[in-house]
Design a protein around this nucleic acid. Structure first.
Length: 505
RNA sequence: GGCCCAUUCGUCUAUCGGUUAGGACGCAAGAUUUUCAUUCUUGAAAGGGGAGUUCGAUUCUCCCAUGGGCUACCA
């Protein structure tokens, strides 16, 4: 490998929300760039004017901001190699299209989409290539004067890459090794369309990667079949010496059946496929996002990093900094990875556990507010400290903890049946009286007094505690009883007990 | 159809010719606990099939099967 500066890029097409697979590709590019002290470029590939979706670019930027993936240059980041939006690079592409036209590596074709479609219907497996281009309407078959005349008339045309048949094209892939294909199976790809004066992906990609001095192309496996075409393009321009190295990542597959993970799978299977919630401006459709579902960005990063790569040992929990140190393209797997949502949940659980009670509490606070609960921060911190290990998402904290903030109105039928004994009302009245008489309502003091009372009276510990729990929580869940009662405070504890005794008798 | 890529527990994966095939998620059981959850312990669970190469293949080669991707004036 040469000692040239590592420069990689993530180049999405602004056609909608950023797919989770795209996020992983961006992540791997980011890790690779950081590790090698290189640059990560953010380029917008909007050469298909028909598929442009307003807001998509902003969405993508916001997603990376949330995830903590930082770019060094590109759209909205600036840099020496701009513009970074392909639609703003028309003149550059025109210049290079001309280079190819002049050196005979490309030609002009006038066949309309309708004509091509008719041809495909007529001839099965029709391909526009060396074997058929002689029969088509292009600058290879038409006299120069007619070509000039058609262009002068404003006739629409495309520029096609002239691929020489029967040549072995080698692509070296960091993950897959040497991939060889015969150039005859490639068609004369359209490189440029006069209709919108824009190149297609293939041309724009090669020109930009070259001009932006990209050293490594790390992208999804769906690009592997066109990689030989890209090699041929570098060759046609005479840029083979500085051609980037390729690494084609395995795809993210559907958790159930077959096929690659698509945006539809998210709502069908009940998990997000987008980092952020996405409102489709065209259809009005809303798709859920990881952020809104309560995921911590660190957990999403960690989970995604391990889908298609591993550090070679048993370590699974890794921070972004650790990932930067450990990441290695050569350790990427070759086979597609099915998306395992359950494991993603586990990662989030682990990251909630690692966060301080204060941090989790501040995330929980707005949820409490939404439920009309207004409590001091220190109380929320205490509750979170006791409860955060029980949830996978911060959002789940409400259901798990709400009894701390709202007194039970109903008492779970099954729990009542099981835990509310004949003498429970009597015992709870005694206990309420006992607690009411306490000046010191601290956890330790309560425990000391109540335990002694149970022992002196010879009561059954479980019966007392379970009934006590039912009066405060309304069901048979939650942390230790004195944890609950001391957070609730004396007044609230007694009130709940008396009310339960009244209702349950 | 053609071309390319892949194939280890249900899932993500480790293994760079010799291992009781390891870990994690999920699942099951047990322990602990005043409940529930957590936690801890244990368990079930894998090399697609067939030929080679080799003293020996999960590992190397080939064939088949299966899965996936690509095959647009989309990226």
């Amino acid at each position: 490998m040469s000692e040239r500066r590592v420069r990689v890029r993530f180049a999405p097409s602004p056609t909608g929300a950023l797919h989770i697979g795209g996020v992983r590709t961006a992540l791997y590019n980011y890790l690779f760039a950081r590790q090698h002290g290189g640059d990560l470029v953010f380029r917008i590939e909007d050469t298909d004017s028909h598929r442009f979706v307003p807001g998509a670019e902003e969405y993508i930027l916001e997603s990376f901001k949330w995830l903590g993936i930082k770019f060094d240059e590109g759209v909205s980041f600036g840099g020496e190699y701009g513009p970074y939006r392909q639609s703003e690079r028309r003149d550059i592409y025109k210049k290079y299209v001309k280079v190819l036209l002049d050196n005979g590596k490309a030609y002009i074709a006038f066949d309309t989409p309708e004509e091509l479609e008719a041809k495909r219907k007529e001839i099965p497996n029709f391909q526009y290539d060396a074997s058929t281009r002689g029969t088509m309407r292009n600058s290879l078959t038409l006299p120069q004067e007619e070509v000039d005349r058609l262009i002068a008339e404003g006739k629409q045309y495309v520029v096609r890459f002239r691929i020489e048949p029967n040549e072995e094209v080698h692509v070296h892939d960091i993950i897959r090794g040497d991939v060889v294909i015969n150039s005859s199976i490639l068609d004369d790809k359209v490189l440029y369309k006069s209709a919108d004066e824009l190149p297609t992906y293939h041309l724009a990609n090669i020109v930009d990667d070259h001009l932006m001095e990209i050293s490594h192309v790390i992208r999804g496996e769906e690009w592997l079949p066109s990689a030989p075409l890209h090699v041929l393009l570098y060759r046609a321009f005479g840029w083979e010496d500085t051609m980037p190295e390729f690494a084609h990542l395995p795809l993210l597959l559907k958790p159930d059946g077959n096929g690659k993970l698509s945006k539809r799978d998210g709502d069908r299977l009940g998990f997000p496929v987008f980092p952020l919630e996405w409102h489709d401006p065209k259809t009005g459709e809303v798709s859920s996002g990881y952020r809104e579902s309560g995921y911590l960005p660190e957990a999403v990063i960690n989970f995604l990093a391990l889908l298609g790569w591993n550090p070679g040992n048993d370590q699974e929990i890794m921070s972004m900094d650790e990932l930067v140190k450990l990441f290695d393209l050569r350790r990427c797997s070759k086979a597609g990875a099915k998306f395992d949502y359950e494991k993603g949940k586990w990662f989030n659980h682990e990251y909630i556990l690692m966060k301080s009670d204060e941090e989790v509490a501040s995330m929980f606070m707005p949820i409490l507010k939404n439920h009309g609960i207004d409590v001091p921060m220190d109380k929320v911190v205490t509750v979170v400290g006791m409860m955060k290990g029980r949830v996978s998402f911060v959002n789940d904290l409400w259901e798990t903890c709400k009894f701390f903030f709202v007194a039970p109105v109903e008492y779970d039928e099954k729990t009542v049946k099981k835990r509310w004994k004949e003498d429970s009302a009597e015992r709870m009245t005694e206990l309420a009286d006992l607690l009411e008489a306490l000046d010191d309502f601290s956890l330790a003091h309560q425990e000391e007094v109540v335990m002694k009372w149970i022992e002196d009276k010879g009561y059954h510990l479980g019966n007392i505690m379970n009934a006590f729990r039912l009066t405060l929580v309304g069901e048979g869940k939650g942390p230790h009883m004195f944890d609950i009662s001391s957070v609730l405070g004396k007044e609230e504890t007694i009130r709940r007990m008396r009310r339960a005794i009244e209702v349950l008798k």
